[in-house]
Design a protein around this nucleic acid. Structure first.
Lengths: 136, 136
DNA sequence: TTATTAATCTACTAAAACTATAGGATAAAC
DNA sequence: GTTTATCCTATAGTTTTAGTAGATTAATAA
């Protein structure tokens, strides 16, 4: 299941991307519009800022705004930042590879074989979808 | 991430499917061969039996054996039994649909739009993969 | 300068899910 | 009737998730 963190993060990004201009939008406004706990959203936006998707401004008239063009934000990177590895087992992960400690032979492993296909199909979707595609 | 339950379940199914005949195999043997905690595997095999994939026999010479032909066991049903919904959000689930309580308009939701594509791509893999395809 | 506003940061907690484990009950074989 | 191995329920430990609290910092406006 998708974590709420990812869900909320995607909604916030889409909301910011759908704005007419790139003026700062307050956390409170995003939270209210998307029905998200403000404090929780706060931490999510912070990680999105640290990763370079969002800019922020403090004080009156402050808030968050999108730095990049939505067409330049592929879902591969967004999902990795918010949700973590795209692969369902680390032994088939491109960016977070780890050997399974219980599995002697990766090539003979049925889980490996299946999850490799699942990862590829998911990657195909994420690589071909940008934030711009999600704007209603 | 894939749960250990699913991982172990898949390994056990593959192990049973790769046997020459359909004689009962003891839990202990499967657990040892696949490096799985025996007690944990016990409960997994139990659910697989209740779902109709496995048969069992008690007492001496007992154990678990595959009931169906591996080519007749698609990953869609196995994954749903072991892991749960294939969709990452319930609002795009075919078998476990639930409306999101925070989302006023499903059609306008960016998460819905993205996860629909991911679900379809995963379904495509699971529908076209049977247990027979996982045997090394 | 001072007050106000809104993001930043650290730390903490409650709840849920996951990963087992314990131990007796049941049924089959011998 | 003893041994063997599955069946079943309950429970406990750990990790992850989701959310909260409260003080700090920076920008704006008076």
């Amino acid at each position: 299941m998708l974590s709420k963190k990812t869900k909320y993060g995607l909604k916030a990004l889409t909301f910011l991307a759908s704005q007419k201009n790139r003026d700062p939008i307050q956390i409170a406004e995003i939270a209210k519009h998307e029905n998200i706990s403000q404090k929780f959203l706060e931490s999510i936006l912070l990680t999105l800022r640290r990763t370079g998707y969002l800019g922020s401004k403090k004080g009156k008239g402050g808030g968050y705004y999108l730095i990049k063009d939505p067409t330049e934000i592929p879902m591969t990177t967004v999902m990795r930042v918010l949700e973590g590895p795209i692969a369902m087992v680390s032994c088939v992960s491109l960016n977070f590879y780890e050997k399974c400690d219980d599995c002697p032979d990766e090539q003979a492993c049925s889980v490996h074989k299946l999850m490799l296909k699942v990862r590829d199909s998911a990657l195909d979707v994420y690589r071909n979808t940008t934030l711009a595609d999600l704007i209603p």
